[in-house]
């Protein structure tokens, strides 16, 4: 399954419907986001059966970016039972994201 691109209207339902979710806030014009993108794809491959792995384009979904106070991208936010548990701003290695997922599964 590919990483799910979430729109504002479906966001809350998707996050609340997943025990654990990870969301990558990104945009086309952001070089560092392009580096994180394959890492997020890797998370989907490794955890996709247990975790919602999604992305939000901050250009298309201003509201979501503003609601979560995303002020620098890439920002990757982790949710557990619908509530934010952690966020990582900027480029991180796969291991950093995996450790957070493992701690919340």
């Amino acid at each position: 399954m590919a990483v799910k691109a979430l729109k504002t209207a479906e966001f809350d339902g998707a996050i609340q419907g997943s025990h654990v979710a990870v969301v990558d806030f990104w945009a086309d014009w952001c070089g560092p986001c392009k580096m994180v993108s394959p890492v997020i794809d890797g998370l989907e491959k490794a955890y996709g059966d247990r975790v919602l792995v999604a992305k939000v384009n901050v250009d298309d979904e201003h509201e979501l970016a503003a609601r979560f106070g995303v002020s620098s991208i890439p920002t990757v936010i982790f949710f557990r039972d619908g509530a934010e548990v952690e966020r990582k701003i900027g480029v991180q290695t796969a291991g950093v994201y995996q450790a957070i997922l493992e701690a919340n599964l």
Partner: peptide, 16 residues
């Protein structure tokens, strides 16, 4: 404040 309004990349974060 890095990532909370401090940025090193105008083309990355400007649109926000």
């Amino acid at each position: 404040l890095l990532g909370k309004g401090v940025s090193y990349c105008a083309t990355c974060d400007g649109m926000l």
